[in-house]
């Protein structure tokens, strides 16, 4: 069971579905461009395999379009200038630039080991010439987005063998 249901755009109609369902059905992104979303979900899925299928790109995209008080992303804990889309866009652009500079191709075209090496360097602020939000902070935020959609759910708790025990379940569980 996914994180919760949210209103995603299928064509011109907004439908309640989980981020994973939005991924499968190809719901329209509201903030990310399609290419940005591909880089983002590739990064997130490399950080935590399963994040792509859980709909991490649609979840984050949906949250980036939300009112400030409704945002459910971990980034709201930190004093990052709003809109938060600038942070994500800046990080993704910096990652893509670094990938092309170092390997001569975009991040999603890299071999898995090359992606992992780049992420490893990013997590330690070691990518030379990085131009975007602090590398390790971008790593932290996207890593936690991936963790939220994979493990911050009833199914995620089940995978770990621990009970969810909600007082009030997120909307998808009602």
């Amino acid at each position: 069971m996914s994180l919760a249901t949210f209103g995603f755009l299928i064509g011109c109609e907004r439908k309640q579905m989980t981020p994973g369902e939005a991924h499968v059905q190809g719901a329209k992104y509201e903030v990310f461009g399609v290419a940005e979303a591909q880089v983002f979900e590739t990064l997130a899925d490399r950080l935590l395999p399963g994040a792509r299928q859980a709909g991490v790109a649609h979840f984050v995209d949906h949250q980036l379009a939300a009112a400030d008080a409704d945002v459910l992303l971990m980034i709201r804990y930190f004093s990052v200038p709003k809109p938060f889309s600038g942070f994500y866009r800046g990080g993704l652009t910096a990652l893509e630039s670094a990938s092309r500079r170092i390997h001569g191709k975009g991040f999603i075209q890299l071999q898995p080991l090359q992606q992992a090496d780049l992420i490893h360097d990013m997590s330690r602020d070691r990518i030379v010439g990085w131009q975007g939000p602090p590398q390790s902070f971008f790593y932290l935020i996207v890593r936690n987005d991936a963790i939220d959609v994979v493990y911050g759910t009833v199914d995620g708790f089940k995978l770990l063998g621990i009970p969810y025990m909600p007082h009030i379940s997120p909307p998808a569980f009602n």
């Binding site: 459910l72 804990y77 930190f78 009030i168």
Partner: peptide, 25 residues
């Protein structure tokens, strides 16, 4: 008060920005 660490973030501040300086924000 939904039982979710994700939904719990709505309990935290989202208003006017605070500019954080120094070594330990």
């Amino acid at each position: 008060l939904i039982s979710s660490q994700v939904f719990a973030r709505r309990n935290h501040w989202s208003g006017s920005a605070v500019i954080e300086l120094g070594k330990h924000p």
